[in-house]
């Protein structure tokens, strides 16, 4: 049963990484443009939030990727 769950866990990565990278970018761009419309600045908030969203997407990529690789090592250690 353990082997089957391992493969399932990694298969779920395929959509997980994609969504976790796309959603911060989309959310931040929408948020940035909404704040711009609200506060009537030109594109200041849009640019700030876009950069934040992109960096957040990359951070998600690294956290998910490295967590998946570190976990097997950690599991086989203290057990």
């Amino acid at each position: 049963m353990k082997k089957k769950h391992e493969v399932m866990k990694y298969l779920s990565l395929i959509t997980q990484i994609g969504f976790m990278m796309a959603i911060p970018i989309i959310g931040c761009i929408l948020l940035g443009s909404f704040l711009d419309r609200l506060l009537n600045t030109r594109i200041v908030f849009l640019v700030i939030f876009t950069i934040l969203g992109t960096l957040s997407a990359f951070r998600n990529l690294f956290v998910i990727g490295l967590k998946k690789v570190k976990k097997p090592d950690k599991k086989e250690g203290p057990k």
């Binding site: 990694y10 298969l11 990565l13 395929i14 994609g18 990278m21 990529l61 998946k68």
Partner: peptide, 21 residues
């Protein structure tokens, strides 16, 4: 090797997911 292949393929899939979104 299988784990690394799945991880790398998942990252390669992101471009497809962006287009789909």
């Amino acid at each position: 090797a299988t784990i690394v292949m799945l991880l790398g393929s998942a990252v390669a899939e992101t471009s497809g997911i962006f287009s789909l979104v």
